[in-house]
């Protein structure tokens, strides 16, 4: 695992819980562009523009920018790799973007021709090793 990666500047991400409609109204963030991870919880990509903590409109925010690393997966082998990591459909994981991948919880961000996996930073070395092990195997 390259040493520099562990201290790389992270993209802004905010955890929001509570009344998500109120959050969207006040912050101006479109809920269609957030990653829903529970009925009343979402991961906002980018700065929400609001202070962390409780907001009287009924929601709470916490910064999670440095807590997650994001790995982008793309290519013709993506489906094969995904089949070994998860039972979920990576491109269409369903209402919740939290899935189990390679045995750890990740947040899935479908992109145009790729998938972003938001992984707890403490697990980055593990999942990198997992990828290396899977990529050494013949295709299924």
């Amino acid at each position: 695992m390259p040493e520099s990666e562990l201290n790389h500047e992270s993209p802004e991400r905010t955890l929001v819980s509570g009344d998500l409609a109120a959050f969207s109204r006040i912050s101006g963030v479109d809920l269609a562009n957030v990653l829903r991870i529970a009925r009343d919880r979402a991961l906002v990509l980018g700065n929400a523009g609001l202070a962390p903590g409780w907001h009287d409109a009924g929601f709470a925010l916490s910064d999670l920018s440095a807590g997650l690393a994001v790995i982008d997966l793309s290519g013709t082998g993506l489906a094969d790799l995904a089949a070994r990591g998860t039972t979920a459909d990576l491109m269409g994981p369903g209402p919740s973007r939290t899935i189990s991948f390679a045995g750890i919880p990740v947040v899935v961000e479908p992109k145009d021709d790729a998938v972003g996996l938001h992984v707890e930073r403490g697990h980055l070395a593990y999942i990198w090793t997992w990828f290396a092990a899977v990529l050494r195997e013949p295709s299924a």
């Binding site: 955890l15 819980s17 509570g18 009344d19 009343d40 919880r41 009924g58 709470a60 916490s62 910064d63 999670l64 920018s65 440095a66 807590g67 997650l68 707890e120 930073r121 403490g122």
Partner: peptide, 14 residues
């Protein structure tokens, strides 16, 4: 009341 208390694990962030 879930609308009045939330839990956020931010351990990895710091």
């Amino acid at each position: 009341d879930r609308s009045r208390v939330v839990i956020h694990d931010t351990t990895a962030n710091y």
